[in-house]
Nucleic acid binder design. Structure first.
Length: 256
DNA sequence: ATGGTTGCGAAGCAA
């Protein structure tokens, strides 16, 4: 089973690239973030034509998450059902091929010390509560998405230059570790240990070509799933060409 | 890096 995640930065603008990618990467499940589409505008028919059922959680202009699956999509759960949902449509979960899949778009946090930064940490805590609850009832859990946190210094191009800015601060990294303490592992790091492997590059200043990026798009797997991990990849090629998203898709293969 | 690009929507915000 191939599980993927991709911050598409507008599914409306990116639909051709997503269709293309589904065609050659052949994921069984694709979690998307920043769809920027209301549910009513979600291109379910286009995905259906490629063999994918889908679920969208979006209200329009900002944020928006979705899951597309060709192995079934049941028991859909939208949001947290708590105050944290006021930060936008940022989490949707569904059971796909026996796996409890979460598509998450963690708040950016903007400036360290701002109310947005505090809200980001609160949101991550709420995600932990959700995952703890889910993990109590199933061993097959994956949390996929744009975490807006680079787990370690090796996940950014220059930790010194970034010191004190969001995505790399200790409270954010601790919040991520707290989430992983629910029994999840960063699947990519089961396969690769080296630095300089990124999933996001700012559009500006040719950062992609200068290799100035971060690895902030993660697939967290429960131990039962991680034990069957056979492959993981950041599809850097998908960041090239016509109208790329700022993020590359990431996927894992598990023998399920 | 202290500028720069993209998407949405039609100016400025968010990333």
């Amino acid at each position: 089973m191939r599980i993927a995640t991709w911050n598409v930065n507008s599914l409306k603008a990116r639909l051709p690239r997503v269709e293309e990618w589904l065609g050659y990467a052949q994921p069984d499940v694709l979690c998307m973030q920043e769809t920027k589409l209301a549910d009513a505008a979600f291109p379910a028919l286009a995905l259906s034509a490629l063999g994918y059922e889908s679920v969208s959680h979006g209200d329009g202009r900002w944020n928006g998450v979705a899951i597309a699956s060709r192995v079934g999509i049941d028991e859909v759960e939208v949001g947290f059902g708590s105050d944290a949902d006021e930060q936008g449509c940022r989490v949707v979960a569904a059971t796909c091929g026996g796996v409890r899949v979460h598509s998450v778009y963690v708040p950016n946090g903007r400036v360290v010390g701002s109310e947005h930064y505090a809200a980001k940490l609160a949101w991550l805590k709420e995600l932990r509560v959700l995952v703890e609850r889910t993990s109590a009832s199933t061993d097959l859990v994956s949390v996929c998405g744009d975490f807006n946190v680079a787990p370690e210094d090796r996940d950014v191009w220059d930790p010194v230059a970034l010191e004190g800015s969001t995505h790399v601060t200790e409270p954010e990294r601790q919040a991520l570790r707290d989430l992983e303490a629910c029994g999840l592992v960063d699947a990519f790091r089961q396969q690769y240990t080296e630095g300089g492997l990124f999933s996001w590059w700012d559009y500006r200043a040719g950062n992609f070509h200068k290799h100035l990026g971060m690895r902030i798009d993660l697939i967290l797997l429960s131990k039962s799933l991680a034990d069957s991990l056979t492959y993981a990849l950041i599809d850097r090629n998908a960041r090239k060409g016509q109208q790329p998203a700022a993020h590359a898709p990431v996927f894992v293969d598990v023998t399920l």
